[in-house]
Simulated scan of single mutants.
Amino acid sequence: MDKAARSIQLVKSSKGSIMPVKKRKIPDDHEHKCKITSFTRPQICGVKTFSSDKQFSSKRCLAWFHKYAGPDKVVGPEAMEKFCEDIAVEPENIIMLVLAWHLEAANMGYFTKDEWLRGMTLLQCDCTERLQSKLDYLHSELNDTVVFKNIYRYAFDFARDKNQRSLDMDTAKSMLALLLGRTWPLFPVFHQFLEQSKYKGLNKDQWYNVLEFSRTINTDLSNYDEDGAWPVLLDEFVEWQKTRSASL
């Protein structure tokens, strides 16, 4: 696959967060073959039901899927844009990542029929209006530290090219902006560090540890243990930031 075929469309919101959508051909096997580890499985608890006399209908849910699915029988990037428009959510909104997590979607920019039916059934959504009624709930899940950690970890496998073990740096920076940009005070500095670093991507261990670092290390880095079990990437970030701060 050439570089153009693997290019990433980065859609930026007015607040600066980014939801990358990979414009690439979905693998020939549309079904869920990517390994999504067990801790990312959605746990639907206390979801409010849509205030309607109608019960959830699998048939209606399937018809809703086919409204967007093309000849490949999958909701692809162009159909995803229409889907986002219909539910009144911008493609770069983090809600779309939360929804993808619930569907256990394997490929960014695509929902297969099995993923759609499984996830929407758990959410009890079989039409646009029902899903819209759940958007506040989906957003509230980001405030649960355990759920957020699962979504964060899921994002690594979701966003990476499946023939690569690491997340390429452009995508990593975009996903970090989406997930941590509004909540981690040091994110702008860390983003700047990644911009000038030699790293071409982040592996899974680095990705996981960035979240732990953002949750446990003080903004002034005063409680960072250089002898701790942090990846070299974060050791280098701390050294870079301390040198930078000393020169200001």
Rank of each mutant, 00 (worst) to 15 (best):
P77W: 01
V89L: 09
K15R: 15
N93Y: 01
E92P: 03
H30Y: 08
N150C: 15
L62R: 11
D220Y: 06
L180K: 03
H32K: 14
I36V: 11
Q55E: 11
F50L: 05
A177W: 01
C45M: 06
Q124K: 13
P27M: 00
T40R: 13
L131A: 02
L167V: 06
Q124M: 10
L180N: 06
T216N: 13
V98Q: 01
K25S: 10
K73I: 11
V210W: 01
S174D: 13
Y224T: 04
L176N: 02
V98P: 00
C45D: 09
D225Q: 11
E212V: 13
S13R: 13
D227P: 00
G76M: 09
T183D: 13
M120E: 02
F50C: 10
K59T: 15
K54M: 06
Q132E: 12
H66P: 05
Q192N: 12
K198R: 13
S166M: 06
F111N: 03
S166K: 09
E85C: 06
V89H: 04
H66E: 15
I87A: 02
F193D: 08
D220G: 07
R130F: 01
S247A: 14
S174W: 11
S14L: 07
K173W: 04
A69T: 04
I44M: 05
S13V: 01
K54P: 00
N218L: 10
Y110M: 07
R182Y: 08
S52C: 11
G76S: 14
W101F: 13
L180Y: 04
S7V: 01
Y68F: 12
T112D: 06
K3T: 12
G46P: 00
F158I: 11
